[in-house]
Amino acid sequence: MLANYFPILLFIVVGLGVGAVAVSVGKVLAPHKPYDDKLAPYECGFEAFEDSRMKFDVRYYLVAILFIIFDLEIAFLFPWAIVLDEIGAFGFWAMMGFLAVLVVGFIYEWKKGALEWE
């Protein structure tokens, strides 16, 4: 079974290598004539007013935390889905309990507006 993972490792290495070769070829073949105006960050044609950090927006943080929770839920659902035959109705209802608790959380989020405007 482990023997199957060696091709995957090699593929990941080759995939990254293809990207690296592509970018290197680009750097070698392309001209390199930097000057200040060309290197300025894009700002619709004029000088940037301020530093490029945006204000901390808590909605991104909330989205990321909710994503962690649901990702964990998916991680629990994966083994359950494939052994559904072996664990029978008891296992099914155990997972329904899990999902019910998390649906309560989802409804709470929804009502509180955490899923809004973003």
Partner: peptide
């Protein structure tokens, strides 16, 4: 996980 959801929302939503 439910506690995590509620905590995250209670602490950050203004």
């Amino acid at each position: 996980l439910l506690v995590a959801i509620i905590a995250a929302i209670a602490l950050t939503m203004r």
